[in-house]
Design a protein around this nucleic acid. Structure first.
Length: 258
DNA sequence: GTTGAGCGTT
């Protein structure tokens, strides 16, 4: 697994939350951990995912143990290119329960009912109706039209982050912190042994193949029992003439005469 | 097969 908080939020009372934006949809917590853990004690990393597809929503939350370490990570990792995209690291403004957070630190807990009227988001959250995620996706990807799909093949040849990258990188040495790579190898965090254990390719042997597809299984559970034909399971229920007379009334009137 | 404003789970 990639996410740390598989059992929910462990302890947000003594941790500083950082919001990571602009990460790729394929970037997982495991990819962010070695990056953020280099600048401080990363207690937990959480990436909001879609309830349906399970894909990353494009941002993540990294919780540090200390504010000064989190502050350093914000300045250092902000603008770093991860998986080909530039990520934006900043302190979380809002907590998981809508608490007010001061630089990632929860300074005040407000009622979930009273202050929720504050304009945090102009539109509804995904959790309110993530089922309708289809329409909200088109809202932000309306530029992704039918003809836009062709130009994607052209732009994929070029680095999408190459343009905005050097704009931000200049003036500030964001790539000079590569020397901190030995930070994580000096201190192996215990959380890493359980989260990065799945990195072994041998683990894939656990799932050699899927024997039955959900579609095939649906036939086995067909009310007809035998659905091998798959095309005439109800041939006995319907007469070749199209009249289901031979199956619904053998001769009810004959015995019901009396 | 993909996308790109924003703030979070059991």
């Amino acid at each position: 697994m990639s996410h740390f908080g598989r059992s929910g939020p462990p302890d947000i009372t003594d941790t500083y939350s950082l919001l990571v934006l602009n990460i790729t949809f394929r970037t997982s917590a495991d990819d962010l951990f070695p990056l953020f853990d280099k600048y401080g004690k990363v207690v937990d990393i959480f990436i909001p995912r879609d309830r349906r597809t399970g894909e990353s929503r494009g941002f993540a939350f990294v919780r540090y143990k200390y504010a000064d370490e989190a502050q350093k990570a914000v300045e250092r990792l902000d603008g770093r290119v991860v998986d080909g995209r530039e990520i934006t690291v900043q302190f979380a403004k809002y907590g998981p329960n809508a608490e007010r957070i001061h630089k990632g630190r929860i300074t005040e807990t407000l009622p979930k009912s009273r202050h929720r009227s504050r304009s945090r988001s102009p539109r509804r959250r995904y959790r309110d109706d993530y089922r309708d995620r289809d329409y909200r996706r088109r809202s932000r990807s309306r530029s992704w039209d039918r003809y836009e799909r062709d130009r994607y093949r052209h732009r994929r040849s070029r680095s999408p982050s190459a343009s905005p990258d050097y704009y931000r990188s200049r003036g500030r040495g964001r790539y000079d912190d590569d020397d901190d790579d030995d930070y994580d190898r000096r201190r192996q965090s215990p959380i890493r042994s359980r989260s990065f254990d799945s990195a072994s390719p041998a683990r894939r042997s656990l799932t050699p193949q899927r024997s039955l597809s959900p579609l095939s299984r649906s036939r086995s559970v067909s009310p007809y029992g035998h659905g091998r034909d798959g095309r005439s399971p109800n041939s006995r229920s319907v007469s070749p003439r199209g009249h289901p007379a031979d199956s619904r009334s053998p001769s009810p009137r004959h015995s019901d005469d009396g």
